[in-house]
Simulated scan of single mutants.
Amino acid sequence: MQLYNTLSAKERARLIDNAGQHRLTLSFYKYAKIGNPQVFRDHLFITWQALDVLGRIYVAYEGVNAQLSLPADRFNEFKNHLDSIGFLKDVRLNIAVEQHNKSFLKLKVKVRKKIVADGLNDDTFDVTNKGIHLGAKAFNKLIEDESTVLVDMRNHYESEIGHFKNALTPDVDTFRESLDIIEADLKEHKETKKLVMYCTGGIRCEKASAYFKHKGFKNVYQLEGGIIEYTRQVKEQALENKFLGQNFVFDDRRAERISDDVIANCHQCGEPFDVHTNCANDACHLLFIQCDQCKKEMNNCCSTTCKEINALPYEEQKALRKGQGNSNDIFKKGRAGHLLYKKDLRNIFEVLKTNKK
């Protein structure tokens, strides 16, 4: 039985166009104890492939994390399947703020050691002992409290284009880096401050809330459903939107516009801009912020060297890449030294001292 994706992204995109159906992009996660992740993974793949689900799904002993799209008219079938699985019954589904039929072009269901890589090897840590969940209204009220420390649990390239007002935005490339940094920088406030966290859809700050409780923080909260659910509640309840800019997402949309504020700058010229792109040179593929003018002048490349390489015939480019592997800059997300206007982030403790003066 076929348990893997067989179509290329181009072939899938063509099928989507020909189908002419509206697709729904959504995400969900659930921390739970899964006895056999491989069997569960195969079950999801077989069932969801039949429903024309596309996306990126991780399954582990600690639960499931799913980002996906499916035909809108098959949503009820999909929801019924989730409800037939005990620990996923009535799981919160985060419907994307901005929809796009081609947000995902393949179905990938993978077994991982963890659904959120945390670098932890502590058998006494209970990921289900989470902090207090906050809806948008309660969140808005709590972050105005002088005794609250609001922390963005996402990576630097995510918070660069959008974050909550006065949030601490750690200068990290990965979630696992942020845990020790935050604990160390806020250790003097474990009992005196209210630690409030947020992320894209809730999965990272839910694990973080459990971790910081495990480390002795007394008042730990998280924004339930993350920025995606916050945006939905703000609209439904006519609340003040305290998020500035765009919400970075890990699919072909790259971001969802939450407010009209543009808080980032083009990494090449410094003009206000907040749209990420990947360098057109396949040997680089660096993710960075590039305005329309620079995109035109640089042919969608991050440097003159990449521009020159990208102008070569395909076979010459391929020959240059042979045996070289991918540049580490791919994983640096805008940290390449030749980008003159990349954002410099201050140490979280320095921000804390500034905000609380």
Rank of each mutant, 00 (worst) to 15 (best):
H189L: 15
A311P: 02
K193V: 07
N5G: 09
L168F: 13
S159F: 08
K332I: 10
R232K: 15
D42Q: 09
Q233G: 09
L239A: 13
K194A: 08
N129S: 10
C294M: 05
S147F: 07
L142Q: 08
G131L: 00
S27W: 01
F212E: 04
R14L: 13
D73K: 13
K187Y: 06
H267D: 10
D118C: 12
V262Q: 05
T148R: 03
I161D: 05
R335A: 04
P272F: 10
K165G: 03
G334I: 01
D344T: 05
G55A: 07
N155L: 06
V116L: 11
L82D: 10
N278D: 09
V196T: 03
L186A: 03
G162S: 00
G226Y: 10
D123P: 10
H285C: 12
E256K: 03
N310Y: 13
L88N: 11
E146C: 09
F139N: 01
D282I: 12
C302Q: 06
I330G: 05
D126V: 11
K333Y: 15
N265W: 07
D274W: 03
A50N: 14
H43P: 00
F40A: 08
G337P: 02
T200G: 03
K322W: 02
F288Q: 06
D152E: 05
L195W: 03
F164Q: 07
A167L: 12
D73M: 10
D152F: 04
C199E: 05
K215N: 01
K110M: 07
K137Y: 12
C284A: 09
R176A: 15
D173R: 15
E188D: 15
C269A: 13
K207A: 06
N265H: 15
T47A: 12
I132N: 01
Q268M: 15
L93I: 15
D261G: 00
K318I: 03
A13Q: 13
N241W: 03
L179S: 13
I309W: 00
K242A: 11
R335Y: 06
F139W: 01
I132A: 04
N36W: 04
H100M: 09
H276V: 10
L339C: 00
N278W: 09
F288K: 07
D145L: 11
K114F: 11
Q222I: 00
A311H: 07
K353V: 11
